[in-house]
């Protein structure tokens, strides 16, 4: 079925709005996207959300842009990807173009500084909320390996600043090995 014009328009306005609200680094778009595309529009599910973050994270470029491109592709193919990329890029393009005219005044503004200080705490709360929900989802699978990967990655990334490419490769390799091992066991199990 061809995605309707209406759906494409929703895709554009959604990515535009989300991008305009992505303060405090690329990861902030994850809880915002989850609310919009998983909870409200039901275009993707929670697992796909994590998968697309993994793809966005392991590709070059900004996480917010990459994640939008995948959602757009999923909703309306290549055209959808272009629409959502445009929607994500426009807000910073417009905002910075305008601010560059008076950027020193903006940078030194006490008013903006105080709003940002409060907002940072809000952003931290939003990220923590989504992490808690996602971590509970992983723990509820009742399997040791995912929980161990989660804890191991957290320690590696947070305390030892291990390169993200290394983490992605390790996580993928462990997952693949686990699946191969399970398949083998499943096959021999059937033969017996």
């Amino acid at each position: 079925m061809k995605p309707s014009f209406r759906k494409k328009l929703t895709l554009f306005t959604s990515t535009l709005k989300l991008s305009a609200c992505t303060f405090g680094g690329g990861f902030v778009i994850i809880p915002l996207m989850r609310k919009r595309f998983v909870d409200q529009l039901h275009w993707i599910d929670d697992r796909e959300m994590l998968d697309l973050v993994a793809i966005a994270q392991s590709s070059p470029g900004a996480i917010a842009v990459n994640a939008s491109i995948i959602v757009g592709y999923h909703v309306a193919g290549v055209i959808g990807a272009l629409i959502s990329a445009l929607g994500t890029v426009l807000p910073p393009l417009i905002i910075i173009s305008v601010i560059s005219l008076f950027y020193r005044a903006f940078r030194d503004s006490l008013f903006v500084g105080l709003i940002m200080k409060g907002m940072l705490a809000g952003v931290a709360a939003v990220i923590c909320d989504v992490v808690l929900e996602m971590a509970i989802g992983i723990i509820k699978q009742k399997r040791m390996l995912p929980v161990m990967i989660m804890i191991g990655t957290f320690i590696a990334n947070c305390f030892f600043k291990v390169n993200i490419a290394v983490i992605i490769l390790c996580g993928g390799a462990v997952g693949a090995a686990d699946m191969l091992f399970k398949n083998k066991k499943g096959k021999t199990g059937k033969q017996n």
Binding site: F27, V53, Q57, G152, T153, G171, G172, G175, A176, D178
Partner: peptide, 20 residues
């Protein structure tokens, strides 16, 4: 599916690290 199931917990941990 195996690769992705290994990546999902790693992704949660990376978002957690950004949260910290």
């Amino acid at each position: 599916r195996g690769i992705l199931s290994g990546l999902r917990p790693a992704v949660v941990a990376m978002i957690a690290s950004a949260g910290v």
